[in-house]
Nucleic acid binder design. Structure first.
Lengths: 113, 113
DNA sequence: TCATTTAATTGCAATATTACAATAAACGAC
DNA sequence: GTCGTTTATTGTAATATTGCAATTAAATGA
């Protein structure tokens, strides 16, 4: 069979896929923890994240790459280190998309169930 | 090797895992589409969702089950049909958790990168 | 130059997710 | 009862995700 295990993104709107892509980024506690650290700390070197979160360095690096590819964070090379931080603009744009989804209102009528 | 392919949830806080679990629910466009329909329509029978979204009935049923297990929707049996709708209370609780995460503020200092 | 430090990449093992055909279950109509 | 209707469940195939050891890459410093 053809596309098993693969989401059929082509049958959904770009907007629906966009929401799903953002949500997937938050769908792992390691990425949640990374983002929380970046919001909290000045110090945002990759090594710090490895220390603070209890995962191996390649694993953290992989999660950072996903967040970077999505544009939610950016990394600046400083010698042998890389300093990561939130991409404020892209975060705000994401927040609007996700916020609109979460803030949907139900119609006035009774609950149907 | 032991836990490959499995998120190491035990090293994260309950709050971080909670955010990830909610986010994962929105991490597939079919579930996004289902929830949007439930917000928009009075008519929320399983069969309608199968018609409106282009996935097979067992696939929709599976996605509905995930949303139901999370508590974001509830289903009421009416004869041979099942009427689904948003669980308003649980949706509001989820919205608060996710909203707090999305609305985090950066410290005042300069961007570190 | 060469060792050290830091992070990214590669390769791989194991589990999770997605999708659907086939089937079952539950109900109503007759 | 039997037949259709609707939804859930089971089983299975295929891809995705997670995690880490080993390695590589790039910069620094002695």
């Amino acid at each position: 069979m053809m596309n098993m295990g693969l989401a059929k993104t082509e049958i959904f709107t770009a907007h629906q896929n966009q929401i799903a892509i953002f949500a997937k980024a938050f769908g792992h506690p390691a990425r949640v923890a990374i983002l929380q650290q970046l919001f909290k700390m000045d110090n945002c070197y990759c090594g710090n994240l490895v220390d603070q979160i209890g995962l191996a360095q390649p694993t953290i690096s992989q999660h950072l790459k996903e967040l970077r590819n999505l544009g939610l964070i950016k990394g600046q090379v400083e010698g042998t280190s890389v300093c990561y931080c939130i991409d404020k603009e892209n975060w705000a744009a994401m927040k609007e998309v996700m916020g609109d989804f979460l803030d949907q209102d139900l119609p006035e009528n009774e609950d149907c169930c």
